[in-house]
Computed example of a mutant assay.
Amino acid sequence: MPWVAVLTLSCGCAGAAADDGRAPGAPTGVTARAGSATSVYVMWNAVAAGPAGPAISAYEVYRGTAKVGDVPGSAHMLDVVRLTPSTAYAFTVRARDTDGRLGPPSREVRATTPTAAAADRSAPTPPTGVTGRAAGSRAVQLSWSASTDDRAVVSYDVYQGAAEIHSVGGNQTATVVTGLRPGMRYSFTVRARDAADNVSPAGPPVRLTTAPGTGEGPDTAPVDFRARTHRAADGAYYIDLSWVAPRVDGVVTEYGVQLDGEPATSLVWGGTPPRGRAAYSFYAGRDAGVGHRVRLRARLPDGTWGAYSAERTVTTGDPS
Rank of each mutant, 00 (worst) to 15 (best):
L83E: 04
Y308A: 12
V223D: 05
P126E: 07
P273T: 02
S145A: 14
T87N: 08
G15M: 04
A48V: 15
D70H: 00
W269K: 00
L296R: 02
R138W: 03
V40E: 09
R94F: 01
G217M: 01
A310Q: 12
R277K: 12
P222W: 11
R312I: 00
T65E: 11
W269F: 15
A116S: 12
M43K: 12
A152V: 12
A278M: 07
D194V: 03
R191N: 01
S74L: 00
N171H: 04
H76K: 09
R295M: 11
T84E: 11
G15E: 06
A245F: 05
Y89E: 06
G270C: 02
G25S: 14
Y237H: 15
E216W: 07
Y159D: 02
V4I: 13
G285Y: 05
P204C: 00
V244Q: 12
T209C: 03
G250Q: 09
A118Q: 12
G317Y: 07
H230A: 11
D240N: 12
P114I: 03
R133T: 13
G291W: 01
A16S: 14
W44L: 05
A227V: 11
A264D: 09
H292Q: 02
G12M: 07
Y186W: 06
Y41I: 08
A288D: 09
T178N: 15
P205Q: 04
T272M: 09
G276Q: 05
S281Q: 11
S10M: 11
N198V: 02
T189L: 06
R277T: 15
M184A: 14
A310T: 14
A135M: 06
D70G: 00
V158P: 05
R226Y: 08
T31K: 11
G132E: 05
R293G: 07
V153A: 08
H230P: 00
S281N: 05
Y62T: 06
L102P: 01
A163D: 15
P204N: 13
R247Q: 15
T265Q: 13
P301M: 08
V257R: 02
R101H: 11
G29Y: 01
P274I: 04
R226H: 09
P51E: 12
Y41Q: 11
S309W: 10
L296D: 08
H166M: 09
A221D: 07
A288Q: 10
Y41A: 10
N198L: 08
A111N: 10
G235P: 04
S39F: 04
Y283A: 02
R275K: 10
A163C: 00
G183C: 04
E108F: 00
S167V: 06
L296F: 02
